[in-house]
């Protein structure tokens, strides 16, 4: 690329630092809200990767890699494992693959919380999406830097 790699914009930097935690929180909110209401792992994962992509725009690839502190490829692997495992739980209980199991937990302050294998599946998808998007994005950004 002929143009300077990182155009320095004060506005982008300042708002970016504020937006990053907000976007991550919003992505987690979307993740947990899923299943019965709009949201879920895929959308949450996209929002989270958009947050990190925003960070990438005003810093560097190294900084973005430090931000997620694991290699994106690990995220894909673990996410897939979690998603598959969530389907296996049902199988061990006599249900077919991906059969849903639900547990009601009573958590102090929040009251009753319904947790089940679909949430686990969503968490897996969340990680896979972040991993895949960032893997492509970082590879492209690195190719541009080189």
């Amino acid at each position: 690329m002929s143009m300077p790699n990182r155009p320095d914009s004060l506005i982008l930097r300042v708002t970016g630092h504020f937006l990053l935690p907000l976007l991550i929180m919003f992505s987690l909110f979307l993740l947990l809200r899923g299943h019965n209401e709009p949201g879920g792992g895929f959308i949450g994962g996209l929002v989270a990767s958009a947050a990190i992509a925003l960070h990438l725009f005003f810093t560097s690839v190294q900084s973005a890699r430090r931000l997620i502190w694991v290699d994106p490829r690990d995220l894909i692997g673990w996410g897939l494992c979690i998603a598959i495992a969530s389907g296996l739980f049902g199988m061990f209980s006599g249900l077919p693959f991906l059969g849903a199991l639900w547990v009601e937990l009573s958590v102090p302050i929040f009251g009753m919380l319904k947790v089940g294998t679909p949430l686990l599946f969503d968490i897996g998808v969340y990680l896979v999406v972040i991993g895949t998007v960032l893997n492509i994005l970082l590879a492209l950004a690195e190719a541009e830097d080189a």
Partner: peptide, 11 residues
């Protein structure tokens, strides 16, 4: 699928 996920974990 499992084999693929596992080999990604140990990439």
């Amino acid at each position: 699928l499992i084999a693929g996920a596992l080999s990604l974990v140990v990439w």
